[in-house]
Write a protein that binds this DNA or RNA. Structure first.
Lengths: 325, 325
DNA sequence: CTGAAAGCGCTAACAT
DNA sequence: ATGTTAGCGCTTTCAG
């Protein structure tokens, strides 16, 4: 049978209020009694029932994390940052995969609210004005990652994808590249959209010809898109929408008997584990995923504690890591 | 303000007991009233408070998942399987990273029990008889993944690492390889231990000379170990303890000016995403990580429902995927 | 088929 | 400094 606060109280010969005080480190407890209670707790192996506690306090120490797919290698790092920060601050973490399906996303939001989470960290690709409005009517804080929304009521953490992309393409141009292709992710994902725009602007400013192919943020897509390109083009550089696309593209290039970066430079974007492994061949825009996660939790806690009241849009610094000099 | 079951009851002009019945699909409710209640729920945007529900029922619909590190690419797939299955069955999922630290592991176990999880799925490297005994005294079911423990009171799901390893080494031998090295993970991790043993037995049975180096289950380790080997040996095949080690080894081999698999065959073990990408160069023992996750949850539910009472040790089938013929 | 009321384990006034 | 008690929101007998 489970041991409750009453068992402890009985065992220690005090009231449950006193036990509660000891548990919650309320200073108004006689040291002697305090020790006795602590001893009873130890003896009985008592663990407080979080349901009862949260119900009584009408709060919880759980965050919900909703993301597209934990098997997409960008997300474990983000998730790890979020989990570490949550744990450090005494929170537990729910996790949910949406596969970018808005219905499933909503389902999880409802589920988490039903579970009384203290806040939800959301990585969503389907977030329009309407949805944001609906969410803001829920009485629970959201922090949005990788998604900057103008005038939204929510805190957001992201990097400047436009700038990152613009800079890296500019850099390629300065190195003399004239035929630079872009393998983009789906445009309904904001990061893909911004990256594409940075590419386009940098290309146009230099009177070059844009060449964009669209796919998904995965290896297979990169492989297929690159194969398509190689059929009738011969670019000297490729800017991939993320690292998985970059790795897929590298495979296709090598399969075609060309080498990276001698024949074609490939630039990725994410700096995920396996892209790091391809060092020194693959240069990449390095996104501080872990830091984004930690920051998201920090913002959430500030919001919950009332430290911050206005929505903040934090933009973290990216880096460009050039692996071949 | 949050809307409770009483708000709904008032709105619909019934008692909260009736609302409760509607929510829980109790058939003993007049269809007309039922509709009225449903309508009120919709209208008010009511979401039941899981704390109150679980407190009243003394159950919960949450599982806890405790694993070493979600950024190790084997685990996201497992975690995804677990999350999918949990969600399908109406459970939420906590996630926790231990970095293989027994203290942190215990901390999370206590935390999750305090949170009243219905069960814990544990991937642990530090599980001796004593720990198992302590866990079994807790009034909560555990399912152990990738860890078979004789006579333990817990359900386990794993593959036969010994057999997988033995077979693959045998296979190499049959193909004529005589110098086969093994890059092992840490022996306190059971899977590493069993894989090593399978290697040793296959090698000895054929009067060959074992050659084993120990490291961690990561890329860097594989890279370093392989470099070390290449300094004074020239194996024709390498059996890596997992896919990260295999990828690291491949990098070292290629850096040394040799090619895979022409000069040296490399066999991995895990079949993680990035190893799949290295196709067709890297053959691998394919571990059904997703399926292990799903199975773990199924076993957990059977246990909770009382369908199964005796501890079961499920061994899932692995495959060998030969990428180069 | 529906309502009233007790109780799940804990917290937080309010008393003492 | 400690005990008493009224909830927190929901389920579940038990009556009717």
């Amino acid at each position: 049978m489970k041991v409750t606060i009453i068992d402890v109280a009985t065992h220690a010969g005090v009231s449950k209020a006193t036990v509660s005080r000891v548990i919650n480190k309320n200073p108004n407890v006689n040291e002697e009694i305090r020790q006795k209670v602590l001893h009873s707790i130890e003896e009985l192996g008592y663990l407080p029932n979080a349901f009862a506690k949260n119900l009584a306090k009408n709060t919880s120490n759980v965050f919900g994390l909703i993301l597209p797919d934990i098997t997409n290698p960008y997300f474990p790092i983000l998730a790890r940052g979020i989990e570490d920060a949550s744990h450090r601050l005494g929170y537990s973490l729910f996790i949910a995969n949406t596969d970018n399906n808005p219905d499933i996303e909503q389902e999880y939001i409802d589920k988490f609210i039903s579970q009384q989470v203290a806040g939800i960290i959301l990585i969503s690709s389907s977030l329009d004005e309407l949805k944001v409005k609906k969410l803001s009517e829920l009485s629970i804080p959201f922090v949005l990652c990788d998604r900057f929304i103008m005038d939204s009521p929510f805190d957001t953490v992201s990097i400047d994808n436009y700038k990152a992309s613009y800079e890296v393409v500019k850099h390629l141009i300065n190195k003399g590249h004239k035929d630079i292709c872009h393998l983009s992710g789906p445009l309904n994902v904001q990061s893909a959209n911004r990256r594409k725009q940075g590419y386009v602007d940098a290309i146009k400013e230099n009177d070059l010809e844009p060449c964009i192919l669209y796919g998904d943020f995965n290896f297979e897509s990169g492989y297929q898109l690159m194969k398509t390109i190689l059929e009738d083009k011969n670019p000297s550089a490729v800017f991939a929408g993320n690292d998985l696309i970059a790795l897929g593209a590298m495979n296709a290039i090598q399969e075609a008997g060309l080498t990276v970066p001698e024949d074609i430079s490939v630039i990725g974007c994410d700096d995920i584990l396996f892209a790091q492994m391809s060092r020194p061949k693959l240069s990449s825009i390095s996104i501080p995923a872990y830091q984004i996660g930690v920051t998201a939790v920090d913002m959430m806690v500030d919001r919950i504690k009332g430290v911050s009241t206005q929505p903040r849009n934090l933009v973290l610094e990216h880096k460009f890591i050039e692996r071949e000099s």
